[in-house]
Design a protein around this nucleic acid. Structure first.
Lengths: 209, 209
DNA sequence: GTTTTTGAACTGACTGGTCAGTGCAAAAAC
DNA sequence: GTTTTTGCACTGACCAGTCAGTTCAAAAAC
C-alpha cells in the first residue's frame, strides 16, 4: 500500500502520528500555554507514548514550531483563495477585503485553539521560536497588505492609506472580534459577526439609517 | 525617579516593594509567559529576596492576579477620562471613540509589557485566574460599549450597530495595531498610528481622496 | 518595639529528554 | 511456501535537573 499523496505530505503511519500530536498539542497549548503544557500530557492526549513524541520531533519546541508553520500555512492559503476568487468574480478591493474577513472568521471558527495560541505567542520576545513566528506572521499579513496595496494602485482605496498599519489593524479587528465571539458569545452566528465587521470596514457606523 | 510601571503611586514601604515586584513580574511574564517565569527571577529582577515575595503575596498566582487588576484599573480610568473629556468639550460620539483610541495607544506605548501579557492570557481557558480576567475584561470593554450605546441612542451611530461585537472589534483593532507597531515598526510615531486607525474608524478607506 | 526584609537551606513534586527493548510487516533467503 | 532477517515506528521506565513554596533566625528599617 503506497502513498495516497494528500497535499504536501505523504500519508505514512508516521504522518498520522504527527497529525495526532499536532491536534493534541494545539489544544493543550492554547489552554495552558507552552510552558505549562507537558510533553507527557501531549503524548497522553494523542494516545501515544512519550518516546513517540521524541521519535517524531527533535524537542518540545520543534514540535511547537512545526505546528505554527502548519497552521499559518492553512490560514494563508485560505485568505489567498478568498482574495483570488473575489477578483475572478469581478469584485472590487473592498469586496476582496470583505471576503478575506469572512475567510478569517471561518478559519477561526474551525481552528479556535490554533488562533488563540498564535495570538498568545505572537508578541513575545526572547523566545526560541521567535524567528519562526516572525516569518509566519509576515506570510499572513502580506496577503492582506497585497490586497490593500493593489487597491490603492487601482484608485479604489485612498492613497493616504497606511498599508502596513491598516493591514495590522484589520487583522486585529477580525482576530479579537472572533476570539471574543468564540469565548464570550458563542451563540452568535458567523454571519452576525461578519456583518458587524463588514459594517465597520465600510464605514457604515455613523448615520441613523 | 519613577520608571514606567503599571502601578500607580504608593505610600508605605511595603507598597514600594510591591511595586518593584509588579514591575519585575510584568516584564518577565510578558516576555516568557507565566509558567516560564520563576519566582526567583522575579525577586532577583526586583532586587529583593525571595522570602520578600512571599511576605507580600500569598503565591505566584496571587501576585499575577493583583497585577492584572491594577493594570486594567489604570486602563479603564484612562479610557473613561478620555471619553468624558470629549463629552465635556462638546465632541460627538465619533470624537469620543477617537479620543479613546488615542488613550488606548498612549497606554500601550507606556505599558507595552502589560498589554502583551494581557492579550496573551485573555482567551485562555481553565486557568486559575480566569474569573479575575473575566471581570477585568468586562470592565474595560464596558467603557467602549457604553460610548457606543449612547451614540446609538442619540442617533449619532447606526441603530443597526451591534454594540458588543463592534466594541470587541474596536478594542482588537487598537490592540493589535499597537502591538504590531511596538514590535515591528517602533520607529513610527503615535500620531501615525492614530491617524491610520482614525481613518479606518471613520470609513475613510475607500475613495481616492 | 514593631514591622518588614533578608538569605540560605530544604522539601517534595514535577519535567524534558534518554535509551534499551518490543512489535510487526515486508524483504530476503532458503 | 516457509523461515529468517531487517529496520522502522513505537514504548515506558528512568534520570538528572528544576521549581514553587516553606521555614526561620537574624538584621534592618521605621
Amino acid at each position: 500500500m503506497e502513498s495516497s499523496t494528500v497535499t504536501g505530505g505523504g500519508s505514512s503511519r508516521r504522518e498520522a502520528t504527527r497529525q495526532k500530536l499536532y491536534e493534541a498539542a494545539v489544544t493543550l497549548i492554547a489552554e495552558q500555554g507552552f510552558s505549562a503544557t507537558t510533553v507527557d500530557e501531549i503524548a497522553e492526549r494523542a494516545g501515544v507514548a512519550k518516546g513517540t513524541v521524541y521519535y517524531n520531533f527533535a524537542s518540545k519546541s520543534v514540535l511547537f514550531e512545526e505546528l505554527l508553520r502548519h497552521g499559518v500555512g492553512l490560514l494563508t492559503a485560505s485568505l489567498r483563495e478568498a482574495a483570488e476568487k473575489t477578483a475572478k468574480d469581478g469584485g472590487g478591493t473592498v469586496d476582496a477585503l470583505d471576503a478575506m474577513i469572512r475567510a478569517g472568521l471561518v478559519f477561526i471558527e474551525r481552528y479556535p485553539a490554533f488562533t488563540q495560541l498564535y495570538v498568545a505567542e505572537l508578541w513575545r520576545t526572547n523566545r526560541a521560536w521567535q524567528s519562526t513566528l516572525m516569518v509566519v506572521r509576515q506570510e499572513a499579513v502580506a496577503v492582506v497588505e497585497g490586497v490593500l496595496r493593489e487597491g490603492v494602485e487601482r484608485g479604489e482605496l485612498s492613497n493616504e492609506l497606511d498599508v502596513p498599519l491598516t493591514a495590522a489593524a484589520l487583522v486585529g479587528m477580525v482576530l479579537v472580534a472572533a476570539l471574543d465571539w468564540q469565548s464570550f458569545q458563542p451563540e452568535r452566528s458567523l454571519d452576525d459577526v461578519h456583518s458587524a465587521l463588514s459594517r465597520l470596514l465600510q464605514g457604515r457606523v455613523s448615520g441613523t439609517r
